[in-house]
Design a protein around this nucleic acid. Structure first.
Length: 871
RNA sequence: GGGCGUUUAGCUCAGUUGGUAGAGCGCUUCCCUUACAAGGAAGAUGUCGGGAGUUCGAGCCUCUCAACGCCCACCA
């Protein structure tokens, strides 16, 4: 009895995932094994995390995204790269400010009643408290973060980077300030960008309103979905080719309710067939009208304010002033009706812009904002993908990316919030003269712009601002930038990926990563997006508690497809990973329990390998090759499947079972150890835990630092593998036969074989244990009248059954088999008889078909022979 | 309006250069065989959405139709 056996026997039969996972993660942390060395001579491999919001709690999306990143990082670490996974958080401007404001509202406060200074103080306190929470949760996933490099988008380094980028872009003329129509959220009290606006289909109306012609009889009828904006009208537009209105172009009309006079103009933009063919132009409250207004040098009249209420000015009738947009619409319609200028109302379905953050209806509003000129920045970003400097996986996302960039519009980057990077523009207190600079030129006389930048402005710099940039000599920047792979969901390609690529190319001259690995979104079991309001969320922390982190990781990984399809999950699906973990645990327990001291090393004695040993080594070697190929090509789901299949159905079901009969401890251990390494990136804890228990001299602190297994020519045993497959087929056939004839397990059987005498002699002990065969005899003349027969390739396995056999049943069984063979035979023959097939098909295919034909022919002969003898 | 995706066993889905279909779950029968009942053995189940085409050969390529889903655009 050895010391190790004692140890192994104390291992519980059911895998206690949480206990072991916590121990193992602590072991890694205590030994600081995730800290990357910028001075290492190894090749770098780096990934920056898509920084989760400080407001966030871990959700399934993070779990998937984090697992995939961790797999890549751990794999490359084992391949011998200096691997860095850089963690951090995003300050998440609007999202965070909304959370704080909501908290204030509970106490009846607003940010304005609190004041900017106090509000920011409160927000910082909150952010500091929450900043580490989500990263701590990521650790529950087994994330091999380098926490020594943890970053936050509002830390000093990021602020410096943001300021430098802003100032440089401004000096290059790529940032400008101007009065344009923007998407305004009346609730957030801020401008938002185009992609932060979501459109929602709503039932509405189309109101047709009559505008009287000036100085003559008649009127022109316009159609609008937003009558309340009419007070900002500056023209009525018609299509220049519209016969109906040809004579009115250049004339004037008088607006109802206010009596203001506006011109009738012609513009191609107007669709003759929509509505009445006449369109009111409101440049201050509609993006299209804004463009029309610019073309015709029209005035811009603002009638709705930043809160979404009617303004108090000369254009808005007094009874409407101060009303909300919704109230004003109702009232305007009433007034129009009263004045008998409302010609017609029809139902009309249209799209309404909503704020991505708070779902408030967007007000297109004329406003002075900061913009980034995107066209010049987009050009190199397009090139980088077209040239292949950056590759998307799956590739189809490239099209999406290119189409968006090719049609890109300027990016509104200023937000009227308090929480974020304040814009580094300073205005002279007396003259208002503006200076854009890294620092305030003269704090006594200059005041900084109060706007802050879009959150995505700072996260767009993430891959290099976290590496020490703008100091281009920073060790991390030199070693780990550009990063290798960016892992994220498709939902933030435009928000984030595009910005990182454009900014990275502009400021570092290099693409920030070479591969963008896009995965699907996690959905609930019905395919619905998970959301708190729907109440269909699954909490990854709950899953980890219930099934274990490795189980969660394994299940998620196995559900990933190369096409990056969305992933539907339900609680029960994680039993798959948990069961696998338990299987690994118990198989390892078996191996460790059966190890004797002479096998306390991982060296194989290649001279003394059995058929089974060679088979499993050959299988392992193939798996090693396929797994490496797939990992390199981001086919990670495939890897999970291959490792599961190998371990469960090859190693456990056959090799361990065979080893109970005839054992090669060294091979048993060798294969297990290699398997643990192969699986480690996906299931890091259990593989580490078991590896630590293997009683051999180790030159690494943990499995995470071990080399990843590589294909080796010494372990190619194809012929032996084929033989083993034949053995398995034989055993399976005999088991099947036993089941069909209800032969109790306790009853051993004798068999006769008419071929492969030597092989069967060799494996008689296997047959004895695995198919309960007591005696194997070779004969060409067995009497099969009272026997059941299995035909396995070129061999008849004859099982004399005496009174256990029902001849009729056996005849049915054999005929069924013959039918099956005959079907395949016919199809093969018809193919081979087809001269075009023989002429056109490649030689290998024809050879293979011929081989198969011979094999089937042979089997059919054997089966026919049996049938003849039985009848 | 433009683009993309999906449609394969009862359910959830794989299927990588075209060579007569796979997994997990579920189901049926049997087994607590000393690693594992979160287990073991045996088994059943599919005109691969419809149609046409290319090909010796199509789940896979082309066209077309249908259903569902997503993204972009925003005719007021």
């Amino acid at each position: 009895m050895t010391e190790i056996q004692n140890t192994a026997q104390t291992i519980a039969t059911t895998y206690d995932a949480r206990k072991i996972e916590n121990e193992i993660y602590k072991f890694w942390e205590d030994n600081k094994v995730f800290t990357a060395d910028a001075n290492s001579s190894k090749l770098p491999y780096s990934i920056v995390i898509p920084p989760p919001n400080v407001t966030g709690v871990l959700h399934m999306g993070h779990a998937l995204d984090g697992t995939l990143q961790d797999i890549l990082v751990r794999y490359h670490r084992m391949l011998g790269y200096e691997a860095l996974w850089l963690p951090g958080c995003d300050h998440a401007g609007i999202a965070t400010q909304n959370v704080i404001e909501k908290n204030l509202a509970k106490d009846g406060l607003t940010r304005h009643s609190l004041g900017k200074e106090k509000f920011l103080e409160k927000t910082w306190t909150w952010a500091n408290e929450h900043k580490d929470r989500i990263l701590e949760q990521f650790k529950l996933l087994g994330a091999s973060f380098d926490m020594s490099r943890k970053r936050f988008t509002l830390d000093k380094g990021c602020c410096d980077a943001v300021k430098k980028v802003f100032v440089d872009l401004y000096n290059k003329g790529l940032i400008y300030k101007g009065s344009y129509i923007v998407n305004w959220c009346p609730r957030c009290q801020s401008a938002i960008s185009d992609i932060e606006t979501n459109y929602e289909t709503q039932d509405g109306h189309l109101w047709e309103i009559s505008y009287a012609l000036k100085d003559e009889m008649g009127a022109i009828v316009i159609a609008t979905t937003r009558p309340e904006t009419m007070f900002g009208d500056v023209a009525v537009a018609v299509n220049p080719t519209d016969f109906k209105y040809k004579d009115l172009i250049g004339k004037y009309c008088v607006m109802p309710l206010t009596g203001r006079t506006i011109p009738i103009i012609a513009d191609d933009y107007v669709d003759k067939s929509f509505g009445t063919g006449a369109l009111k132009i409101t440049p201050a409250h509609d993006p299209n009208d804004f463009e029309v207004g610019k073309r015709h040098n029209l005035e811009q009249i603002k009638v709705i304010d930043e809160k979404g209420c009617m303004m108090r000015n000369e254009y808005v009738p007094p009874q409407l002033q101060g009303l909300t947009r919704e109230e004003a619409r109702k009232k305007t319609v009433e007034m129009l009706e009263l004045n008998q200028v409302l010609v017609r109302v029809t139902d009309h379905v249209h799209n309404v812009g909503k704020c991505q953050r708070c779902n408030t209806t967007i007000e297109p509003l004329l406003s002075t904002q900061w913009f980034v000129k995107m066209k010049p920045l987009a050009k190199p970003a397009i090139e980088a993908v077209k040239k292949g400097d950056i590759k998307f996986i799956p590739q189809r996302w490239e099209k999406n990316y290119l189409m968006w960039l090719e049609n890109i519009r300027d990016w509104c980057i200023s937000r009227q919030l308090w929480w974020g990077h304040q814009i580094p523009a300073y205005y002279k207190n007396d003259t208002g003269e503006m200076v854009v600079a890294l620092e305030n030129p003269d704090p006594a006389n200059y005041t900084q712009d109060t706007d802050v930048l879009d959150t995505w402005f700072s996260s767009g710099l993430w891959p290099f601002e976290t590496m020490g940039w703008p100091d281009v000599n920073a060790a991390d920047f030199k070693k780990f930038y550009p990063t290798n792979t960016l892992v994220t969901g498709f939902d933030i390609i435009f928000f984030w990926v595009v910005r990182m690529i454009t900014m990275g190319l502009e400021f570092t001259g290099k693409a920030p990563f070479s591969t963008v690995f896009i995965h699907g979104l996690i959905r609930d079991e019905h395919g619905q997006k998970m959301s708190k309001s729907k109440g269909n969320t699954i909490d990854p922390v709950d899953l980890i508690e219930k099934y274990g982190c490795d189980a969660l990781r394994f299940t998620l990984t196995s559900l990933c497809t190369y096409g990056g399809q969305d992933i539907k999950i339900s609680d029960e699906k994680f039993e798959y990973g948990r069961n696998f973990a338990n299987k690994i645990w118990n198989a390892s327990r078996f191996v460790l329990m059966n190890l004797t001291e002479k096998s306390y090393n991982l060296q194989l004695d290649l001279e003394n390998l059995s058929l089974a040993d060679k088979w499993i080594l050959n299988e392992l070697n193939n798996v090693i090759k396929i797994v490496n190929d797939n990992l390199k090509n981001y086919r990670i789901g495939e890897v999970a499947g291959i490792l599961y299949e190998f371990f469960w159905n090859k190693y456990c079901s056959w090799y361990i079972e065979l080893s109970k009969i005839e054992k090669n401890e060294k091979v048993l251990l060798y294969v297990l150890e290699k398997f643990l390494r192969l699986l480690h990136p996906i299931m890091p804890h259990i593989t580490e835990a078991i590896w630590q228990k293997i009683p051999v001299q180790k030159n690494q602190i943990g499995i995470l630092k071990c080399d990843y297994p590589q294909y080796c020519g010494n372990f190619v045993f194809e012929a032996e593998s084929k033989q083993m497959e034949f053995v398995f087929e034989s055993i399976k056939s005999l088991r099947n036969l036993r089941a069909e004839f209800n032969i109790p397990l306790g009853l051993k059987i004798n068999i006769f074989i008419d071929n492969n005498e030597k092989l069967f002699k060799n494996i008689s002990t296997y047959l004895s244990v695995l198919a309960k065969v007591s005696k194997v005899e070779y004969t060409k003349t067995a009497d099969i009248a009272k026997s059941a027969v299995c035909v396995v390739e070129d061999t008849k396995i004859i099982v004399p059954l005496e009174d256990l056999i029902d001849i009729k049943q056996e005849l049915v069984r054999q005929n069924k088999k013959l039918d099956k063979l005959d079907n395949e035979f016919k199809s093969i023959v018809s193919r081979l008889n087809n001269s075009n097939f023989v002429k056109n098909a490649p030689k290998e295919v024809i050879d293979k078909t011929n081989d198969r034909k011979l094999q089937i022919e042979n089997e059919m002969l054997l089966v026919k022979d049996i049938i003849k003898k039985l009848s």
